[in-house]
Nucleic acid binder design. Structure first.
Length: 285
DNA sequence: ATGGTTGCGTAGCAA
């Protein structure tokens, strides 16, 4: 199961590129961020024509997240749990794989929970926006901890707006006064890792060139002045089934690109098949 | 570089 994430910077401006990329990449699940559109104006028919279901959590002008999936989705959560009176559409979560029986066996697929998130940018440092970024990350940590407690497969994909380490920027020094690279931001990301998540990219490479974002300004793409701020975090049971990880960086060279590129992780869910349990006593870990 | 670019929506903010 190929799970992709892409901050598209405006789904209406990007729909042609999204359709072309989906046809080329054929993901099973797509987490979108910065759709910048209310739900009724989302270009739904164009993704449905490609065979995807969609769940949407958008708002006017800013932010906005969505999940597209070839399989139907259940138990949708709109907004990051625990944030009161949040007026920013930055989180949506859905459960996929409805315990389908595999043909002519008694094996079933385990459900997998997918989150599409768009964490706050937080600039400038010291502002209300910065405090909101750190607060939002605290709520994410709390929610993620409760999700891990179940032991089920959980994948958090999206734009975290955090550069985790010096390896994740072409020019780390230029980010030192930026909220994306502030020590409190990096600490918030590490706390997610400490919970037990696996950073999908770092499971497969130590490369210092694994960027997902290049600023529109100052010719950043041509100079490869990039950063890695889009991440796929895998719960332990999801990470156990990780096959491949990829960054579709060439999408950045397309006409009218987003400033972010798609990132994906492929899980071998065939190895996640579980027998249908009929026993009276069933031990879980 | 107190800048540089893009999307949304049509001024100026957010990134």
């Amino acid at each position: 199961m190929k799970i992709a994430t892409w901050n598209v910077n405006g789904v209406r401006a990007r729909i042609e590129a999204i359709v072309a990329w989906i046809k080329a990449s054929n993901p099973d699940i797509v987490c979108l961020q910065e759709t910048k559109v209310i739900d009724k104006e989302f270009p739904l028919s164009q993704v449905e024509d490609l065979g995807y279901h969609a769940v949407l959590y958008g708002q006017k002008m800013f932010h906005g997240v969505a999940i597209l999936s070839k399989l139907p989705m259940q138990n949708i959560t709109y907004g990051l749990p625990g944030i009161q009176d949040d007026n920013q559409a930055r989180y949506i979560e859905a459960v996929i794989s409805p315990h389908q029986q595999i043909e002519s066996t008694n094996m079933y697929n385990r459900p997998i929970c997918i989150a599409s998130l768009y964490a706050p940018n937080g600039n400038p440092i010291g502002s209300e926006k910065f405090l909101y970024k750190l607060s939002w990350m605290q709520h994410l940590e709390k929610h993620a901890k409760s999700k891990l407690a179940s032991g089920g497969m959980f994948v958090m994909a999206g734009d975290y707006n955090i550069i985790p380490s010096h390896r994740d920027a072409q020019n780390p020094a230029s980010w030192e006064q930026d909220a994306l690279y502030h020590k409190s931001s990096k600490a918030a990301f590490r706390r997610l890792i400490y919970l037990g998540f696996v950073d999908a990219i770092r499971a497969v490479t130590d490369s210092d060139q694994a960027f997902t974002f290049w600023n529109y300004k100052s010719d950043s793409w041509r100079k490869n002045n990039g950063i890695r701020i889009d991440h796929i975090l895998l719960s332990p049971s999801a990470a156990d089934n990780l096959n491949f990880v990829g960054i579709e960086d060439l999408v950045r060279s397309w006409n009218k690109p987003s400033d972010h590129v798609p990132l994906w992780a492929d899980l071998n869910l065939a190895s996640c098949l579980v027998p249908h349990i009929n026993h009276r006593y069933c031990l879980s870990r």
